[in-house]
Protein backbone atom coordinates (compact mmCIF):
# COMPACT_ATOMS: atom_id res chain seq x y z
CA UNK A 1 0.00 0.00 0.00
CA UNK A 2 1.48 3.28 -1.05
CA UNK A 3 1.59 6.56 0.77
CA UNK A 4 -0.68 8.04 -1.90
CA UNK A 5 -3.61 6.04 -0.56
CA UNK A 6 -3.97 8.73 2.08
CA UNK A 7 -4.60 11.26 -0.66
CA UNK A 8 -8.11 9.86 -0.78
CA UNK A 9 -10.21 12.17 1.41
CA UNK A 10 -12.10 9.31 3.07
CA UNK A 11 -8.91 7.49 4.01
CA UNK A 12 -7.33 10.71 5.17
CA UNK A 13 -10.32 11.45 7.38
CA UNK A 14 -10.10 7.98 8.88
CA UNK A 15 -6.40 8.16 9.60
CA UNK A 16 -6.37 11.76 10.78
CA UNK A 17 -9.22 11.08 13.21
CA UNK A 18 -6.96 8.55 14.92
CA UNK A 19 -3.75 10.57 14.71
CA UNK A 20 -5.16 13.94 15.68
CA UNK A 21 -5.82 13.32 19.41
CA UNK A 22 -2.34 11.82 19.81
CA UNK A 23 -0.62 14.70 18.07
CA UNK A 24 -2.69 17.29 19.91
CA UNK A 25 -2.05 15.62 23.28
CA UNK A 26 1.68 15.32 22.66
CA UNK A 27 1.89 18.90 21.54
CA UNK A 28 0.17 20.16 24.69
CA UNK A 29 2.48 17.98 26.80
CA UNK A 30 5.64 19.19 25.06
CA UNK A 31 4.56 22.82 25.13
CA UNK A 32 3.54 22.58 28.80
CA UNK A 33 6.76 20.93 29.87
CA UNK A 34 9.01 23.02 27.62
CA UNK A 35 7.52 26.40 28.47
CA UNK A 36 7.27 25.80 32.24
CA UNK A 37 10.80 24.40 32.28
CA UNK A 38 12.09 27.26 30.17
CA UNK A 39 10.27 30.03 32.00
CA UNK A 40 10.67 28.94 35.62
CA UNK A 41 13.50 26.44 35.92
CA UNK A 42 16.31 27.96 33.91
CA UNK A 43 18.72 30.60 35.20
CA UNK A 44 18.61 34.15 33.86
CA UNK A 45 21.22 34.97 31.28
CA UNK A 46 24.08 36.98 32.81
CA UNK A 47 23.79 39.70 30.19
CA UNK A 48 20.20 39.57 29.01
CA UNK A 49 18.51 38.74 32.31
CA UNK A 50 15.02 37.26 32.23
CA UNK A 51 14.27 38.68 28.80
CA UNK A 52 16.16 35.78 27.24
CA UNK A 53 13.29 33.49 28.15
CA UNK A 54 11.18 34.75 25.26
CA UNK A 55 13.46 32.57 23.18
CA UNK A 56 11.16 29.64 24.01
CA UNK A 57 8.40 31.25 21.96
CA UNK A 58 10.45 33.22 19.48
CA UNK A 59 12.75 30.56 18.05
CA UNK A 60 10.16 27.77 17.60
CA UNK A 61 7.57 30.08 16.04
CA UNK A 62 10.18 31.52 13.68
CA UNK A 63 11.21 28.02 12.63
CA UNK A 64 7.61 26.98 12.05
CA UNK A 65 6.88 30.14 10.07
CA UNK A 66 9.43 29.03 7.50
CA UNK A 67 8.66 25.32 7.71
CA UNK A 68 4.97 25.99 7.14
CA UNK A 69 5.78 27.72 3.86
CA UNK A 70 8.02 24.83 2.83
CA UNK A 71 5.19 22.43 3.64
CA UNK A 72 2.79 24.53 1.54
CA UNK A 73 5.28 24.46 -1.33
CA UNK A 74 5.54 20.66 -1.19
CA UNK A 75 1.77 20.30 -0.92
CA UNK A 76 1.26 22.69 -3.85
CA UNK A 77 3.70 20.72 -5.98
CA UNK A 78 1.90 17.48 -5.14
CA UNK A 79 -1.40 19.09 -6.10
CA UNK A 80 -0.07 20.44 -9.40
CA UNK A 81 1.60 17.17 -10.35
CA UNK A 82 -0.68 14.48 -8.93
CA UNK A 83 -3.98 16.36 -8.43
CA UNK A 84 -4.61 15.04 -4.92
CA UNK A 85 -7.28 17.22 -3.38
CA UNK A 86 -6.18 16.63 0.20
CA UNK A 87 -2.81 18.09 -0.72
CA UNK A 88 -4.32 21.35 -1.99
CA UNK A 89 -6.55 21.60 1.05
CA UNK A 90 -3.63 20.92 3.38
CA UNK A 91 -1.72 23.79 1.76
CA UNK A 92 -4.74 26.01 2.25
CA UNK A 93 -5.05 24.86 5.86
CA UNK A 94 -1.39 25.51 6.65
CA UNK A 95 -1.30 29.08 5.36
CA UNK A 96 -3.12 30.90 8.19
CA UNK A 97 -1.22 28.81 10.76
CA UNK A 98 2.06 29.79 9.16
CA UNK A 99 0.90 33.39 9.03
CA UNK A 100 0.14 33.41 12.75
CA UNK A 101 3.54 31.78 13.46
CA UNK A 102 5.16 34.60 11.49
CA UNK A 103 3.20 37.13 13.51
CA UNK A 104 4.23 35.48 16.80
CA UNK A 105 7.87 35.51 15.70
CA UNK A 106 7.62 39.19 14.75
CA UNK A 107 5.78 40.16 17.94
CA UNK A 108 8.06 38.25 20.31
CA UNK A 109 11.03 39.61 18.38
CA UNK A 110 9.78 43.15 18.93
CA UNK A 111 9.18 42.51 22.63
CA UNK A 112 12.67 41.06 22.94
CA UNK A 113 14.24 43.76 20.81
CA UNK A 114 12.91 46.62 22.92
CA UNK A 115 15.08 45.93 26.03
CA UNK A 116 17.99 44.47 24.05
CA UNK A 117 18.43 46.86 21.13
CA UNK A 118 16.39 49.71 22.58
CA UNK A 119 13.90 49.61 19.72
CA UNK A 120 10.74 47.73 18.87
CA UNK A 121 11.60 47.46 15.25
CA UNK A 122 14.75 47.69 13.22
CA UNK A 123 15.09 47.11 9.50
CA UNK A 124 17.38 44.25 10.20
CA UNK A 125 17.63 41.55 7.48
CA UNK A 126 16.00 38.83 9.57
CA UNK A 127 13.16 41.02 10.76
CA UNK A 128 12.65 42.38 7.29
CA UNK A 129 12.65 38.90 5.76
CA UNK A 130 9.97 37.85 8.19
CA UNK A 131 7.90 40.89 7.38
CA UNK A 132 8.17 39.98 3.68
CA UNK A 133 7.26 36.39 4.50
CA UNK A 134 4.21 37.70 6.32
CA UNK A 135 3.20 39.63 3.19
CA UNK A 136 3.57 36.46 1.12
CA UNK A 137 1.27 34.62 3.52
CA UNK A 138 -1.20 37.50 3.39
CA UNK A 139 -1.30 37.47 -0.41
CA UNK A 140 -1.63 33.69 -0.51
CA UNK A 141 -4.51 33.61 1.95
CA UNK A 142 -6.21 36.56 0.23
CA UNK A 143 -6.01 34.81 -3.14
CA UNK A 144 -7.59 31.66 -1.70
CA UNK A 145 -10.39 33.71 -0.22
CA UNK A 146 -11.01 35.74 -3.37
CA UNK A 147 -11.70 32.86 -5.77
CA UNK A 148 -14.99 31.03 -5.60
CA UNK A 149 -14.34 27.88 -7.58
CA UNK A 150 -12.30 25.60 -5.27
CA UNK A 151 -10.21 23.95 -7.98
CA UNK A 152 -9.38 27.21 -9.72
CA UNK A 153 -8.36 28.63 -6.36
CA UNK A 154 -6.20 25.59 -5.63
CA UNK A 155 -4.46 25.87 -9.01
CA UNK A 156 -3.82 29.58 -8.85
CA UNK A 157 -2.58 29.57 -5.25
CA UNK A 158 -0.28 26.65 -6.06
CA UNK A 159 1.25 28.66 -8.92
CA UNK A 160 1.56 31.65 -6.60
CA UNK A 161 3.21 29.49 -3.93
CA UNK A 162 5.79 28.24 -6.43
CA UNK A 163 6.65 31.67 -7.76
CA UNK A 164 6.45 33.14 -4.25
CA UNK A 165 8.97 30.61 -2.95
CA UNK A 166 11.53 31.62 -5.53
CA UNK A 167 10.98 35.28 -4.73
CA UNK A 168 11.02 34.67 -0.97
CA UNK A 169 14.49 33.14 -1.22
CA UNK A 170 15.54 35.95 -3.53
CA UNK A 171 14.20 38.54 -1.08
CA UNK A 172 16.15 36.91 1.74
CA UNK A 173 19.41 37.42 -0.15
CA UNK A 174 18.41 40.85 -1.36
CA UNK A 175 17.62 41.94 2.18
CA UNK A 176 20.90 40.52 3.46
CA UNK A 177 22.72 42.45 0.81
CA UNK A 178 20.81 45.59 1.67
CA UNK A 179 21.52 45.73 5.38
CA UNK A 180 23.96 43.74 7.50
CA UNK A 181 21.85 43.96 10.64
CA UNK A 182 21.70 43.75 14.41
CA UNK A 183 20.23 40.28 14.83
CA UNK A 184 22.45 37.68 16.43
CA UNK A 185 23.37 34.56 14.47
CA UNK A 186 21.26 31.43 14.64
CA UNK A 187 20.69 30.21 18.16
CA UNK A 188 20.72 26.61 17.11
CA UNK A 189 22.79 24.54 14.75
CA UNK A 190 23.54 20.87 14.46
CA UNK A 191 27.02 21.52 15.74
CA UNK A 192 26.21 21.84 19.42
CA UNK A 193 29.50 23.40 20.42
CA UNK A 194 28.44 26.75 19.00
CA UNK A 195 25.06 26.75 20.63
CA UNK A 196 23.56 28.25 23.68
CA UNK A 197 24.44 26.17 26.72
CA UNK A 198 22.60 22.99 27.68
CA UNK A 199 20.45 24.55 30.40
CA UNK A 200 18.75 26.71 27.79
CA UNK A 201 19.07 24.26 24.95
CA UNK A 202 17.13 21.26 26.29
CA UNK A 203 13.89 23.09 27.15
CA UNK A 204 14.17 24.90 23.82
CA UNK A 205 14.28 21.59 21.94
CA UNK A 206 11.20 20.44 23.86
CA UNK A 207 9.45 23.68 22.94
CA UNK A 208 10.36 23.27 19.29
CA UNK A 209 8.97 19.74 19.31
CA UNK A 210 5.83 21.16 20.90
CA UNK A 211 5.48 23.79 18.18
CA UNK A 212 6.01 21.23 15.42
CA UNK A 213 3.31 19.03 16.93
CA UNK A 214 1.04 22.02 17.49
CA UNK A 215 1.44 23.00 13.84
CA UNK A 216 0.70 19.45 12.76
CA UNK A 217 -2.40 19.28 14.96
CA UNK A 218 -3.72 22.65 13.73
CA UNK A 219 -3.12 21.73 10.09
CA UNK A 220 -4.87 18.40 10.60
CA UNK A 221 -7.87 20.06 12.21
CA UNK A 222 -8.06 22.70 9.51
CA UNK A 223 -7.60 20.19 6.69
CA UNK A 224 -10.41 18.10 8.16
CA UNK A 225 -12.59 21.20 8.24
CA UNK A 226 -11.72 22.01 4.63
CA UNK A 227 -12.54 18.45 3.57
CA UNK A 228 -15.88 18.66 5.35
CA UNK A 229 -16.59 21.97 3.64
CA UNK A 230 -15.81 20.41 0.27
CA UNK A 231 -18.02 17.46 1.09
CA UNK A 232 -20.82 19.88 1.85
CA UNK A 233 -20.14 21.62 -1.45
CA UNK A 234 -20.27 18.28 -3.28
CA UNK A 235 -23.51 17.29 -1.56
CA UNK A 236 -25.11 20.59 -2.49
CA UNK A 237 -24.08 20.09 -6.11
CA UNK A 238 -25.53 16.60 -6.11
CA UNK A 239 -28.76 17.88 -4.59
CA UNK A 240 -28.98 20.60 -7.24
CA UNK A 241 -28.38 18.15 -10.06
CA UNK A 242 -30.94 15.67 -8.73
Amino acid sequence: MSLWEYANPARFMGLSAKVLPVVAGLSLLCLGVGLVWGFFFTPDDYRQGATVKIIYLHVPSAMMAINAWVMMLVASLIWLIRRHHVSALAARAAAPVGMVMTLIALATGAIWGQPMWGTWWAWDPRLTSFLILFLFYLGYVALWEAIEDPDTAADLTAVLCLVGSVFAVLSRYAVNFWNQGLHQGASLSLDKEENVSDVFWLPLVVCIAGFVLLFLALVLVRTRTEIRARRLHALRLRARMG
Partner: peptide
Protein backbone atom coordinates in the same frame (compact mmCIF):
# COMPACT_ATOMS: atom_id res chain seq x y z
CA UNK B 1 -5.48 41.96 -4.36
CA UNK B 2 -3.17 42.35 -7.35
CA UNK B 3 -1.16 45.03 -5.51
CA UNK B 4 -0.97 42.83 -2.44
CA UNK B 5 0.26 39.83 -4.43
CA UNK B 6 2.79 41.80 -6.42
CA UNK B 7 4.15 43.87 -3.51
CA UNK B 8 6.43 41.20 -1.98
CA UNK B 9 7.51 40.05 -5.44
CA UNK B 10 8.76 43.56 -6.16
CA UNK B 11 11.09 43.65 -3.14
CA UNK B 12 14.27 42.24 -4.73
CA UNK B 13 13.99 44.48 -7.78
CA UNK B 14 13.36 47.54 -5.64
CA UNK B 15 16.27 46.78 -3.32
CA UNK B 16 18.83 46.20 -6.06
Amino acid sequence: LLSLLVLPLYVPTLIF
